[in-house]
Design a protein around this nucleic acid. Structure first.
Length: 465
RNA sequence: GGCGGCGUGGCCGAGUGGUUUAGGCAGGGGCCUGCAAAGCCCCGUACCCCGGUUCGAAUCCGGGCGCCGCCUCCA
């Protein structure tokens, strides 16, 4: 069984499912007010791999990820660009799905929008007020964190130390600087919904509570996002659920930052690279490989060199797949291969077991990948030694396990050649047959100029790329 | 001020008491090849500093130095 680090307890522990055989996961999506960057990409990839691996482990997975389509930043952007909020949100939501699809990330089963849940959020806020744990002010409705058991659990800090470190500006109407907005009273010109507390809009932290519980039910299995969401976002979600007396996430999973140079990448620092920019000229699988080569909780550096390095590593796996005609396995929405390798006789059980041991250990993708590369080397060696049967079984295993990680290998050897290029190949074959090496080298150079790498093998000449 | 993480060979990046000290990229040597490419084999013996525990520490403990993050919108 998969063991994952749990932010609430601070330890790696088995993912104990609410319903055996079923895994429910809620991954905080993003606020659609700007283009998604590669940090968002890492998060999407990490949870995509968790989802794929859970499915591979034989579980039926329900994956929910929200879209925050109403927020101060969306309002600001709409105002400054003279557009409506839905226009802005629509544009960047589309960019988000486009980017994640390009990254090979499986679409969540449900992608609820905050604006579709306002009524339910109002009901939650009203209930919290009724219970005496929330109170209205002139600017909105706030949750009284003093009234919540265990506030600070995820931040792993006491209420006192959180209060001491609070850097928010003092709002004299708030009972504690830590109290957070459940409802924001609309200012003139802002989009607003009616509520018992006056026209306004929901606070950010409320939507995830309402939508996760609605779609996944009380006590769902896994709640995830980037480390920055631990506090205050997830802390505040949990606070609302606790105040409501409802069982919330059983397991909290958070992925680490993407760094550029020595700083975290973030929109506020304006040092981000968009996913679209990254993928312009880079194989999306190379970025996935780069992401998976570091443990999901660690900070990870993305540099041009790291991307180039990952691309070369990916080539190695592609060549293996092509050499043994391993077919790509794209879009594994559900993994057709059962976790029990015995069902797939041409797979190498030991490799599958080693892979699972790594993955079960807090998603040790670096270790799992190391095993795949090692197996790739052994498969090539077997092939060189003439044991094609064994080599192919290993190669297919590598192909399958790569697919579990969302990396579809192979299919790069069947390059379409135009007539001109084909003629060069034919001419070169003839030159080689007659021992005209200088002409053959000349033609190889010509082919190289067209972007092809020429490989002369015992079974003929192959062009790559 | 509070809380947390990190410091590994040229680069990236695993590894938490001892064995063959992952894996990738780069580099050197070799096999193969007309020459290459690809592939395979071999090689570089690293763990911030200072103490300590231990038969034995990159791995545990203490101290120091450096870097990063959270406590505020943020994946």
């Amino acid at each position: 069984m998969l063991r994952l680090h749990d932010t609430a307890t601070g330890v790696v522990r088995p993912l104990e499912l609410r319903d055996p055989g079923h895994a429910s996961m809620y991954v905080c999506g993003l606020t659609v007010y700007d283009l998604p960057h590669i940090g968002h990409g890492r998060q999407a990839l990490v949870f995509d791999v968790i989802r794929r691996y859970l499915a591979f482990s034989g579980l039926e997975v329900h994956h929910v990820s929200n879209v925050t389509d109403i927020d101060d930043r969306i309002i600001d952007r709409a105002a400054s660009e003279g557009r409506t909020e839905p226009e802005v949100a629509g544009e960047f939501e589309a960019a988000w799905w486009e980017a994640t699809e390009a990254l090979g990330v499986l679409r969540p089963h449900d992608a609820p929008h905050a604006t579709a849940y306002v009524e339910a959020m109002v009901a939650l806020v009203a209930d919290l007020v009724e219970r005496g744990v929330a109170y209205p002010t002139s600017t909105g409705v706030y949750l009284d964190v003093e009234k919540v058991d265990g506030y600070g659990l995820l931040a792993r800090q006491s209420l006192d130390s959180l209060r001491a470190g609070a850097r928010v500006e003092v709002d004299p109407e708030k009972r504690s600087p830590l109290d957070f907005a459940l409802w924001k009273t609309a200012k003139p010109g802002e989009p607003a919904w009616d509520s018992p507390f006056g026209p306004g809009r929901p606070g950010w932290h409320t939507e995830c509570v309402v939508m996760s519980l609605d779609l996944l039910g009380d006590g769902f299995d896994l709640h995830g996002g980037g480390v920055d969401l631990i506090f205050p976002h997830h802390e505040n979600e949990r606070a609302q659920a606790v105040a409501e007396g409802r069982a919330f996430a059983r397991h909290w999973v958070h992925n680490g930052w993407v760094m550029t140079g020595t700083e975290k990448m973030s929109k506020s620092l304006a040092n981000f690279v968009t996913i679209a920019d990254l993928l312009n000229g880079t194989d999306a699988r190379a970025y996935r490989l780069l992401v998976l080569r570091s443990q999901y909780r660690s900070q990870m550096q993305v540099t041009p060199q790291a991307i180039a390095d990952a691309s070369l590593a990916l080539d190695r796996l592609d060549r293996l797949a092509d050499r043994f005609s391993v077919r790509p396995r794209p879009g594994l929405a559900t993994i057709p291969v059962p976790a029990d390798a015995g069902h797939a006789p041409n797979l190498v059980a030991a490799e599958v077991e080693a892979f699972r041991a790594h993955m079960d250990d807090d998603l040790d993708t670096p270790g799992a990948l190391a095993g795949l590369f090692d197996a790739a080397g052994r498969a090539n060696a077997l092939g060189d030694a003439g044991d094609t049967e064994a080599a192919r079984a290993l190669a297919e295993t590598v192909g399958l396990l790569s697919a579990v990680l969302g990396v579809a290998l192979g299919g790069h050897d069947s390059v379409e050649l135009d007539d001109d290029t084909s003629r060069l190949v034919t001419e070169r074959d003839a030159a080689r047959a007659s021992g005209d090496w200088s002409r053959a080298d000349e033609l190889r150079a010509e082919l190289a100029e067209r972007g092809f790498v020429v490989e002369d093998g015992p079974s003929g000449t192959t062009l790559r790329r």
